Deep mutational scan, measured.
Amino acid sequence: DTINITLPDGKTLTLTVTPEFTVKELAEEIARRLGLSPEDIKDTHNGKTLDPSLTLAEYGITPGSTITLEIK
């Protein structure tokens, strides 16, 4: 299953994830792909900052969802 990550420059990154991924694991994968530190990444969905300890499923993030990435 894939989700879309909207980057600060407007580009989109597509990642393969499972509903059990935590937001922290997602940030780590994004950081790895972009050459950043996971601590520099802030993920938001529907205007809410995502708690790193919760899973994508707990936020109702499903395949095809879009998450907005902010760099701290």
Rank of each mutant, 00 (worst) to 15 (best):
S37D: 12
D1F: 14
A27K: 13
L15C: 05
R32H: 10
E70T: 10
T18K: 08
I61A: 03
T68S: 12
K11N: 12
D51H: 04
I67D: 01
A31K: 05
T55K: 06
G35F: 05
L56T: 01
T18D: 05
L13Q: 03
T44F: 12
I30K: 00
T22R: 03
E58N: 04
G64N: 06
L54V: 08
T68H: 14
G60N: 05
L50A: 04
I61T: 01
L56N: 00
I41N: 01
A57N: 06
L15G: 00
L15T: 01
V23T: 02
I71V: 09
I30N: 00
T18W: 13
N4Q: 08
E25F: 04
K72C: 13
E28Q: 08
D40S: 13
T14S: 10
R32P: 00
H45N: 10
L36N: 05
A57G: 08
L34C: 07
K11R: 12
L34M: 07
P52S: 15
I41R: 02
V17G: 01
D1Q: 11
K42A: 12
P38S: 08
T2K: 09
L36K: 08
T2Y: 12
L56D: 00
T6E: 13
L34H: 02
P8H: 08
L26P: 00
S53R: 07
P63Y: 04
G47F: 15
I71A: 05
T12M: 11
I3V: 07
K11G: 12
T16N: 12
D1E: 09
L54R: 14
P8E: 08
A27H: 15
Y59P: 00
L50G: 04
L36E: 05
L7D: 02
G64D: 04
L13T: 04
P8V: 09
D51N: 06
E39F: 15
D51R: 03
R32T: 07
P52W: 14
E28S: 06
L50H: 04
I61F: 08
T44G: 12
L54F: 07
G10L: 03
T12D: 03
K24M: 08
L26W: 03
I41K: 01
D9A: 04
I61M: 05
I71N: 05
T16M: 11
P38D: 05
L54W: 09
L54S: 10
P38C: 12
V23P: 00
G35N: 10
I61R: 00
E58M: 04
K72G: 12
F21I: 10
I41A: 02
I3M: 03
L13R: 00
I61G: 01
T18V: 06
K24S: 07
L13V: 09
R33E: 10
D51K: 04
G10W: 02
E70A: 09
K42M: 14
E39D: 11
G35V: 02
G64Y: 03
G60Q: 03
L26D: 00
G47Y: 05
T66Q: 06
D40Q: 13
T16C: 09
T55L: 04
G47N: 08
K24T: 04
T66V: 08
G60W: 02
L7H: 02
T16K: 14
E25M: 11
L69G: 01
T12S: 09
T12N: 09
H45G: 10
E25N: 09
G64C: 03
L56K: 00
K24N: 05
L7S: 04
F21V: 07
G47Q: 04
I67N: 01
V17L: 07
T2I: 10
I71P: 05
T18H: 12
A57C: 06
T66I: 09
T16P: 11
P38M: 13
P38E: 06
P19K: 10
L7A: 04
A27R: 14
T6Y: 12
L36W: 12
E58S: 08
A31G: 07
G64T: 02
A27G: 09
F21D: 04
R32D: 07
V17S: 02
D43S: 15
L50Y: 12
E29A: 11
H45C: 14
K48H: 15
N4W: 11
F21H: 06
P63F: 04
T68P: 05
E29V: 08
K42H: 10
L36S: 07
D40I: 11
A31H: 05
N4R: 11
L56Q: 00
L34E: 03
D51Y: 04
T66A: 04
D43V: 15
